[in-house]
Design a binder for these strands. Structure first.
Lengths: 199, 199
DNA sequence: CCGCATTTATGAGCAGGCTCATTTTCTGGC
DNA sequence: GCCAGAAAATGAGCCTGCTCATAAATGCGG
């Protein structure tokens, strides 16, 4: 039973490795699920015992990156809310970087609030996690609990930054930094004027 | 030649009509291109002589709605920038309303800045148009020309509102109005503090 | 060791978006 | 009318994500 469990997780790992490699080499669309299965030395059907969807494979790669980003973020001390949010997103972008070329299709479906309508046990756990962290960072700095509208606005801005980053053609994606900076400044400024003011 | 041209545009119109009807009745995914072709009394292949993609059909429906929205918007006089932008987006939402149930898949690909990377002669004409109008509205009210970052931020907020609206479950989508209001207030406030201040 | 149950792997096959070689329809000059 | 060339229509068929009936593999009580 243990041997089998190990083999199973080894297969899963192998799928993720070969998929990442193929996606990086040929892009998301040009990599077929059959390609991945062959490279991982399993049957096509078996692939779908491990991941319910082609997109779920990229999703798993992204989740792993987000976990690493969270660890990185926890080490950073930031004064203002702007700085803390900036650092949070930067940590994620650093981890996403190797996957930048093929992660776009995932971002579209995963960042969109359109995805939120589906049942809550799906992959929007990462969104909930992220928003909880943002809320905690705001509370630590004496902003009240963030309203649903505030969270929605934050998420929109966050999604906008990631989407921009995915296609940012400036040499080192420095344009994304500028956008992120302005986005977080805008959000924090709005929070202070529109919310604290009425507290 | 003229007769033919008329017949061609009649076919196009017929495709759009039956597609809208089928999408409304069964949703975007459940409606196949074969269904549309049968309902329009043409062959599957012919459908793709008129629209290069299934999504392009929804795109054409959306474009028509946007044209009507623009007409509606031109009639509205608004004082502040917030009010003008609010009115602009409201006009679009009113026109999109009949298509709300099936328009979501289109929004994902069309609103995302991810789409901007492709060549500029594609469907992002509507984005350029919209942003030019926003820029004009801002100029009329003595904001300077909007910077690329400002336009990017605006577009992100706009996309966030539309995406929210598409899945808004409040009875009359009144939650969308609140979000739109806050979004535009945030944007206009940021414009004033961050940009005019340094002029 | 041996059935037996449960879990996992397999690949033929389906569905649906889209293509393209072929056929049909149209047009303009004689 | 009639014919050549252009434009449009056609539907068989390709590709690819995904499913599902079937077959192996594994674990376990006796």
């Amino acid at each position: 039973m243990r041997v089998t469990a190990e083999k199973k997780s080894a297969t899963r790992k192998r799928i993720l490795e070969v998929a990442a490699e193929l996606f990086r080499a040929h892009g998301y669309d040009a990599t077929t699920t059959r390609d991945i299965a062959v490279a991982a030395e399993i049957a096509t059907g078996t692939l779908f015992n491990y991941f319910s969807t082609k997109e779920a494979i990229v999703g798993a790669l992204a989740d792993a990156a987000l976990v690493r980003a969270r660890v990185e973020q926890a080490k950073i001390g930031a004064e203002s809310l702007e700085e803390a949010l900036f650092a949070l997103v930067m940590a994620e972008l650093r981890q996403f970087k190797p996957h930048r070329k093929y992660i776009a299709p995932l971002l579209e479906t995963r960042l969109s609030p359109l995805a939120e309508s589906v049942d809550p046990n799906t992959g929007d756990a990462s969104r909930v996690d992220h928003l909880e962290l943002v809320d905690a960072l705001a509370r630590e700095r004496n902003f009240g609990e963030l309203s649903p509208v505030a969270l929605q606005l934050y998420w929109t801005l966050y999604a906008g930054v990631l989407a921009f980053w995915a296609v940012d053609k400036s040499p080192k994606q420095e344009d994304t930094l500028a956008l992120l900076d302005e986005s977080m400044a805008m959000f924090a400024g709005w929070l202070r004027s529109d919310h604290r003011g009425s507290n």
